[in-house]
């Protein structure tokens, strides 16, 4: 497996110290890392899953709107940040692998390194009370 770019490595280290749930994906949408607070919400552990391709993790959590309608992947903030290279924010429902339904708010932004190297995206999310 090839070495990650330094900005991605530092983002992981930062995420590992923060109490906010964080996901980091590469330019292909592969889930490179999620921290312990994210594990709590997603209901799975990074040490168990390792990296996951977008096709794997994108369908795991069954995101739905407030009305209970399935959300198309292209509406998810992390996907928007990746595709459009712009910050994106949104809130919706997910069901983690622990089968708990949670309402979450997500802010995602693209990761652009030195020399305009596009590296992926990072999402921070919170479980919110309605």
């Amino acid at each position: 497996m090839s070495q990650k770019e330094i900005e991605i490595i530092l983002a992981r280290h930062l995420a590992s110290y923060l109490a906010m749930p964080i996901l980091i994906v590469d330019t292909e949408g592969t889930l490179l890392y999620y921290n312990e607070p994210a594990e709590e919400i997603l209901g799975m552990r990074y040490t168990d899953t390792g990296e996951m391709r977008a096709s794997e993790w994108g369908v795991l959590f069954k995101p739905t709107s407030d009305e209970g309608e399935p959300l198309a992947p292209e509406r998810l903030p992390l996907v928007v940040a990746l595709a459009e290279r712009q910050p994106a924010r949104g809130s919706f429902w997910i069901r983690g692998l622990d089968n708990v339904l949670r309402h979450i708010d997500i802010a995602a932004f693209p990761l652009v390194g030195q020399a305009d190297r596009y590296l992926g995206a990072l999402a921070m999310f919170w479980e919110v009370e309605l």
């Binding site: 070495q3 990650k4 330094i6 490595i9 590992s16």
Partner: peptide
């Protein structure tokens, strides 16, 4: 830096 258990795997190590 920031690594709670250094060294991590090859792909997560700066300079590897």
């Amino acid at each position: 830096l920031g690594s709670m258990q250094f060294p991590l795997s090859d792909d997560w190590t700066s300079g590897h």
